[in-house]
Nucleic acid binder design. Structure first.
Lengths: 139, 139
DNA sequence: AACAACTATTGACGTCACCAATTATTGCTC
DNA sequence: GAGCAATAATTGGTGACGTCAATAGTTGTT
């Protein structure tokens, strides 16, 4: 009898939950949650982003972005700068402290991934990574 | 600059969210959510389960199971039967209506997985499935 | 000049995860 | 076999979160 566990879509859902929990328990000592961390990492790769951009790219509601950026700003990890082109928009950028924070949690994120993928050898991890990237990169 | 998207753990988290959303939008016409569906599919593979067992196997809080089983019972898809061994426990079983419901949503679940894995060919899907199963099957 | 579209923000509502406490029952132990 | 810790289901509370509607300020279009 094929249970739901044999369904790849459901497996992804389940493992996504587990992965998120691992990240969150890991981040909790810093007072942040996975959502904050995702924003920081996105900013690290983009050198400034409109809140609207964060919303669409990360899949969080615009109103959620407001709170997340508020939190990060309160901790001094990001700043809101006025957009030169459009006075409605604000550009969120990492501060130096934000970069330092990311450096400090770098190997920690790797450790989480390491725990999660413990049953796989390096070659298999690379295969999985490649497949997931292909799945993730569709509109 | 390696963004968070290059991190397998985060990829899993992200794809898990997407998968869950697909499942939920698909199930919403039936009035159930993914959590209910997961319970039904687990029951289909076990011919009766204690609520405690559902809690540990599916990773939901015992108090959450109460509500889920209440909902399913209200729809006539499951029943609570007294355990012959232990009067504290109740055994949750699928009704005939529950089985019929699962049959009706069978190919729908496959369609969700199909949408999700659109970029992969059949061989790659099997590889992914096998890797995810290995990752999922750790304590 | 008028109006539709867009950005950030606020607020409300329902769902959900997480934790503590309760009741009924069981198993252990002395 | 009496007392007591452990367990199963349940209830309730709290905080986080997704979603939706509404608003103020700004831009682009016609």
């Amino acid at each position: 009898m094929r249970g739901l566990h044999a369904d790849t879509g459901y497996l992804l859902y389940r493992l996504g939950l587990r992965s998120g929990q691992l990240f969150n328990t890991f981040l909790q000592e810093s007072g942040l949650r996975l959502r904050h961390y995702a924003v920081l990492r996105y900013l690290a790769g983009s050198a400034g982003a409109l809140q609207r951009e964060l919303s669409t790219r990360l899949g969080y509601d615009p109103s959620a972005i407001v709170g997340l950026v508020d939190d990060l700003e309160k901790l001094g990890l990001t700043e809101r700068r006025p957009s030169p082109d459009d006075r409605r928009s604000k550009i969120v950028v990492l501060t130096e402290e934000g970069r330092a924070f990311l450096r400090g949690t770098d190997e920690a994120g790797l450790r989480v991934t390491n725990d999660l993928l413990a049953p796989l050898d390096p070659a298999e991890r690379e295969t999985l990574q490649a497949l997931l990237l292909r799945v993730a990169d569709q509109p």
